[in-house]
Nucleic acid binder design. Structure first.
Length: 886
RNA sequence: GGGCGGUUAACUCAGCGGCUAGAGUAUCAGCCUUACAAGCUGGGAGUCGGGGGUUCAAAUCCCCCACCGCCCACCA
C-alpha cells in the first residue's frame, strides 16, 4: 500500500494496527495501576465472564462501556484500575467437562471426584483463557497483572473466611427444607436459578375414596405422579361442600395408604374442585401445609427424577413415564374423573432447562434478611446509585421480598464447603483450618461433599480480588470501587449479593455507581441464541469493520433503554466515520508545514480558527458531561457531529484557501491551529476509538508518548467566542442560501454565480468582506458582493431572507419567474403559519402573564424577525408578479 | 397475580413541559470540487399508538384503553 508524505496509508489498516498497538500498550505497562501513585482512585472490577464462555455481544457491550470510562479517567489523571478476571461457573463448567468425558465414553462417577476436578482444572487452563484473549481484541485496557479467577488461591481463602464468619455469626445454617432440585444436574438450585416457563399442560381430576363412607373426594392436580407422596388432602375450612368430610380419611389412589382430610385457609375453593392433594416432600406449598399440620413427608421421586419404592410398581420409572402409565391405571380403575387442558408456569433449571423437582433435602442456607436490609438501605441512603435510576425499584423489590439463599450444590467443581461431619457423634464442624478429628468425641470426620453456589464467590468479587482478607495496599487504595457496569439480568444474581457481602464484610458499599445497560438483541429485536441461529460473533465484526467502528457503534446504541438492536449496517456506518477521521487527519498531517504540537496551544488568529476553537470548547464540555453522567449515546452523537459536520464539512473547507494560499502568516496560523485542534479531537475520541486515534497521534508532529496517557481536554472560558460563532454562522447562512438557490433553479455546478448580500450589521458585513474569498469555492461563485443600504434588489435576482438581511442571486437569463414565485410562496406559507402561532401566543393574556419572562421575550423577538422576513419576501413576490404580468 | 418498559419519518432510535419534533440508515435530485464516491451539495418524508384530563403551553405530566416485550411470583 502506498503511503503519503505524512506516512499514512490510503485507509486505516485496522487489522494490522490493532494487534501492534495493543501489544505496545500492554508491554509498556500502560494498563497497570499503582496504588502508591497519586490521583483520585477510579476503579472498576470486571463482571467476570464464565471460563466456559466465548465472547458474545453482551460482553462486547459491557467491556466497551467499561473501557470508555477507564480510558477517560486514566487520561484525566485519576489513579485508574480496571481489574479483570474470570468466574469458575460451577454447573456450566462441570457440564462442559462431563460432556467431553461422555464423548470419550467415560463419566465423572467412573473417574472419581479428585480425578474429575483435576480434569476440570486442565480444561480450564487450556480453554479458560480464550475469553480473556478475546477481550484484548476489543482494546480493553485491563490491568492484566491483577487478573483473578474465582477459584484461585486468594479468592478461595476469601470464600472460606466468609463462609466460616457467617456461620459463626449465625448467618449460615444447615437444615432440611424443600428446595429446587434439578434431576439432570443432580443438584439443588437457588430460587433464582429456576426459570418459569408457561407451558401447555393438563389438570387431572382424580377421585380419592373417603374411608368408611360412600363419598369420594375429587382432587385436581397437574402432577398425578406425586400422589404416591400424598400425606393429606386439604380443603378450605369455609367451604360448605366439605364440612362433613373434614377430619375423615381418604384412601390414596393406587396405594394402600390412608391420609387425613384437613382444613386450611390456604386452599382456594374456586380452583379445581376446591380440594387439594398435599405432598409435603415435593411441593413448596404442601411442605408448608405439612409443617403447619404436622404431616409426615413422603418422598416418592429420587434425585435422578425416577420414582422410588413409595411408587410401588412404578418404582424405577422416570417421573414423566410414571405419570403416563399411572394415568392409564387410574382411568381403568374409574379414578380419573376428567382431564382439562391447563397452561401454567413450570419451573426449569436455568442451566439445562430440565423441569425442576421440588425436593425435601438437607442443605446449607444464608440467612439473608439482615444482609438484604442493609443492602437496600445503602441504595435508599444514596451510598450507591443506579444509572438509570429506575432500576433501583427492581433492586428494592427483590431485596424487600428476599428468602433465604440455598448455597449448597451437589457438584464437584467449585469451593467445597468447609464443614465436617462426625461419623460417630454427628456433630458438624465448620472451620478455617481442616480439622483432623472430631473435637467433641475424637472420632473420624467426613468433609461435607457439597460445593458452594458459584454466585457465592462472585458476591465477594469487589474485595476478594483486591486481596481481602489481607489488608493489602490494593484493598486500602481501591475499595470501594467506583463503577460497576453490567446488564439488568444479573441485578439479583450478582449486584444485590455483592452489595450484601460488601457491606457486611467491608462495612462500606462495594461501588458508588451501578451502571445498568441494555441487552444486545439482533436487528429484529430477538434475543440472540444458538438455537435461533442469529448469534453475531463480535470478533467477526471486529475483523470486518475494526474494533473502533464496533466500539463506536456499541457506544452510540447504549442509551438508557432495555434492549439494543445491533445491525451490520450501523457498524458499517461508523466504519465510514473512522475512514472520515482518517482522511481528515491525512489532509491535516500532509499540510502542516513546520507546525508541531509541542509548540503549544496557538493564539487563534483567523476567524475560522477562533470559531473552531470555540465550538471545540463547547464539545469538550459536553463530552465531559456525558461521560460523567454515563450518557454514552449522547457522547457518541456529540463527537460524531462535531467531527463530521463542523470540523470536516466547514472548518477544513473554510481554511483550505489559506492552507494552500500565498499568505504565509495566515497559513502558519491555520497550520498551528490544525495540529492543535486535531490533537484535541484525537483525545476526545480516544476513549471510544482507541486504535485509530493512537495511530494518528503517533503521526502527529510533536505529540509525546502514547495518546492513552495524554491529558483529557478541559473546558476553557478564554476560547469561547460567541462573536466568532455568530460571524461564521452568518457566512454559513450565505453559503447555504446560495447553494440551495442553485439547486432550486437547477443551475449546473459549472455555472458560476455572483450572489449579493445585503446586511445591516456592520460586524457581519465586514466579516463577509474579509472572508468572502474563502466562500467562493464552497458556493461555486465567482464573486460575492455586498449591497449597500440603499441598493435595491435586482429584478431578476432570486431571494433568500434572514433575520440579519438578504441574499440575492442575480440570475440574468436563468431565472424562472414561476419557479421563484413558487419558492417564495412556500417559504411565506411556512413563515406565516409560524408567525400566526407566535401572534396567537402573544395575544393570550394568560401566556404573557404566566409564562416566564424570558420565554415571552424570546417569542416576541422571534415574531419580529419573522415579520421582517415576511415583508422582504412579500415585496420580492410582488415584484415578480409585476414582471410576470404582461 | 404483582411490577417494569415500549409504541415518534420507510427502518433503527433520540428528544421527556416552552425555538418550525431531530439524527443515522434508506430514498429522490445534482456533482469524480487535488483528505475521503467509504465522498460532496440540495431536497422530500412524521394527525409523536387511541381517548380523556392538568396547564398560558403536552411527544414530554396524570388517568383510562389497545397492542408488543421483559422481570418477579409457592394457586394445585
Amino acid at each position: 500500500m502506498t503511503r503519503d508524505a505524512a506516512g499514512l496509508d490510503k485507509n486505516f489498516n485496522h487489522q494490522e494496527a490493532e494487534a501492534r498497538l495493543y501489544k505496545w500498550w500492554e508491554e509498556s505497562g500502560f494498563f497497570r495501576a499503582d496504588p502508591a501513585a497519586p490521583g483520585r482512585p477510579f476503579v472498576i472490577v470486571i463482571p467476570p465472564p464464565n471460563v466456559t464462555g466465548k465472547l458474545h455481544m453482551g460482553h462486547a457491550l459491557d467491556e466497551t462501556l467499561q473501557d470508555i470510562l477507564t480510558r477517560y479517567h486514566r487520561m484525566c489523571g485519576d489513579n485508574t484500575l480496571w481489574l479483570p478476571g474470570t468466574d469458575h461457573a460451577g454447573i456450566a463448567t462441570q457440564n462442559v467437562v462431563e460432556r467431553a468425558l461422555a464423548a470419550e465414553g467415560g463419566s465423572r462417577e467412573e473417574l472419581g471426584r479428585e480425578k474429575f476436578v483435576e480434569r476440570v482444572w486442565r480444561w480450564k487452563n487450556e480453554y479458560g483463557a480464550d475469553i480473556v484473549h478475546q477481550l484484548r481484541r476489543l482494546g480493553a485496557s485491563c490491568d492484566w497483572s491483577r487478573e483473578r479467577f474465582t477459584m484461585d488461591e486468594g479468592l478461595s481463602r476469601a470464600v472460606r473466611e466468609v463462609f466460616v464468619s457467617l456461620y459463626e455469626q449465625g448467618l449460615i445454617y444447615r437444615d432440611y427444607y424443600i428446595i429446587n432440585w434439578c434431576p439432570r444436574c443432580r443438584t439443588a438450585l437457588a430460587d433464582l436459578e429456576v426459570e418459569h416457563e408457561d407451558r401447555p399442560d393438563h389438570l387431572y381430576y382424580v377421585r380419592y375414596p373417603v374411608v368408611g363412607k360412600e363419598a369420594v373426594l375429587t382432587v385436581a392436580t397437574t402432577r398425578p405422579e406425586t400422589i404416591f407422596g400424598d400425606t393429606a388432602v386439604a380443603v378450605n375450612p369455609q367451604d360448605s361442600r366439605f364440612q362433613d368430610l373434614i377430619g375423615e380419611k381418604v384412601l390414596v389412589p393406587l396405594t394402600d395408604r390412608v391420609a387425613p382430610i384437613i382444613a386450611d385457609s390456604y386452599v382456594d375453593p374456586d380452583f379445581g374442585t376446591g380440594a387439594l392433594k398435599v405432598t409435603p416432600a415435593h411441593d413448596p406449598n404442601d411442605f408448608k401445609l405439612g409443617q403447619a399440620h404436622r404431616l409426615p413427608s413422603l418422598k416418592c421421586i429420587d434425585d435422578d427424577g425416577r420414582m422410588n419404592q413409595a411408587a410401588g410398581r412404578y418404582a424405577g420409572q422416570d417421573r414423566f413415564d410414571c405419570r403416563r402409565n399411572m394415568l392409564a391405571e387410574l382411568e381403568e380403575g374409574g379414578l380419573l374423573e376428567k382431564t382439562e387442558p391447563l397452561t401454567h408456569a413450570v419451573g426449569v433449571c436455568y442451566r439445562c432447562k430440565t423441569v425442576v423437582e421440588p425436593n425435601l433435602s438437607r442443605q446449607w442456607f444464608v440467612r439473608t434478611a439482615p444482609l438484604a436490609a442493609r443492602a437496600a438501605r445503602a441504595v435508599r441512603d444514596g451510598e450507591t446509585a443506579f444509572v438509570p435510576k429506575n432500576w433501583e425499584k427492581t433492586y428494592f423489590e427483590w431485596l424487600d421480598n428476599i428468602r433465604d439463599w440455598c448455597i449448597s450444590r451437589q457438584l464437584w467443581w467449585g469451593h467445597q464447603i468447609p464443614a465436617w461431619h462426625c461419623l460417630s457423634c454427628g456433630q458438624t464442624i465448620v472451620s478455617r483450618e481442616d480439622p483432623l478429628a472430631c473435637p467433641y468425641c475424637g472420632e473420624d470426620l467426613e468433609r461435607d461433599p457439597d460445593v458452594l453456589d458459584t454466585w457465592f464467590s462472585s458476591a465477594l468479587w469487589p474485595f476478594s480480588t483486591l486481596g481481602w482478607p489481607d489488608q493489602s495496599p490494593d484493598l486500602a487504595r481501591y475499595y470501594p470501587t467506583t463503577c460497576l457496569v453490567t446488564g439488568f439480568d444479573i441485578i439479583f444474581f450478582w449486584v444485590a449479593r455483592m452489595m450484601m457481602m460488601g457491606l457486611h464484610f467491608m462495612k462500606e458499599t462495594p461501588f458508588r455507581t451501578v451502571i445498568i445497560h441494555a441487552l444486545v438483541k439482533d436487528a429484529e429485536g430477538r434475543k440472540m441464541s444458538k438455537s435461533k441461529g442469529n448469534v453475531v460473533d463480535p470478533l467477526n465484526i471486529v475483523d470486518r469493520y475494526g474494533a473502533d467502528a464496533f466500539r463506536f457503534t456499541l457506544c452510540s446504541l447504549a442509551g438508557h433503554g432495555r434492549d439494543i438492536r445491533l445491525s451490520d449496517e450501523r457498524v458499517a456506518g461508523y466504519g465510514k466515520f473512522v475512514n472520515k477521521l482518517w482522511n481528515a487527519a491525512k489532509l491535516v498531517l500532509n499540510n502542516l508545514g513546520a507546525a508541531r504540537l509541542s509548540d503549544g496551544a496557538p493564539a487563534p488568529l483567523t476567524l475560522p480558527d477562533r470559531w473552531l476553537r470555540s465550538r471545540l470548547d463547547r464539545t469538550v464540555r459536553l463530552m465531559r458531561r456525558h461521560l460523567d453522567e454515563f450518557y454514552y449515546d449522547r457522547l457518541a452523537d456529540v463527537i460524531y457531529h462535531f467531527v463530521w459536520d463542523e470540523f470536516c464539512d466547514w472548518h477544513l473547507e473554510l481554511i483550505k484557501p489559506m492552507l494552500y494560499g500565498e499568505d504565509e502568516a495566515a497559513r502558519v496560523s491555520v497550520q498551528s491551529n490544525l495540529v492543535y485542534s486535531l490533537s484535541v479531537l484525537l483525545k476526545l475520541l480516544h476513549p471510544i476509538m482507541p486504535f485509530v486515534t493512537e495511530e494518528l497521534w503517533s503521526k502527529l508532529p510533536g505529540a509525546p508518548g502514547s495518546l492513552m496517557l495524554a491529558p483529557f481536554p478541559e473546558g476553557d472560558d478564554q476560547v469561547l467566542d460567541p462573536a466568532a460563532e455568530e460571524r461564521i454562522g452568518f457566512l454559513m447562512d450565505v453559503t447555504r442560501a446560495t447553494r440551495s438557490m442553485r439547486a432550486d433553479f437547477g443551475l449546473p455546478q459549472a455555472q458560476k454565480l455572483a450572489p449579493l448580500v445585503k446586511c445591516g450589521e456592520p460586524a457581519l458585513a465586514s466579516a463577509l468582506e474579509e472572508y468572502s474569498p474563502l466562500l467562493l469555492k464552497l458556493m461555486g461563485a465567482e464573486s460575492l458582493g455586498l449591497a449597500g443600504a440603499e441598493t435595491a434588489k435586482p429584478r431578476d435576482a432570486a431571494l433568500a431572507a434572514f433575520p440579519w438581511g438578504e441574499v440575492w442571486l442575480p440570475l440574468a437569463g436563468h431565472i424562472d419567474l414561476a419557479e421563484e414565485s413558487r419558492r417564495l410562496e412556500k417559504e411565506l406559507a411556512g413563515l406565516g403559519k409560524e408567525a400566526k402561532a407566535a401572534r396567537a401566543k402573544l395575544a393570550n393574556a394568560d401566556y404573557v402573564n404566566k409564562a416566564p419572562e424570558e420565554i415571552v421575550e424570546e417569542t416576541r423577538e422571534r415574531l419580529s424577525a419573522m415579520e421582517a422576513r415576511t415583508e422582504t419576501l412579500k415585496r420580492s413576490l410582488n415584484l415578480l408578479r409585476e414582471m410576470e404580468a404582461p
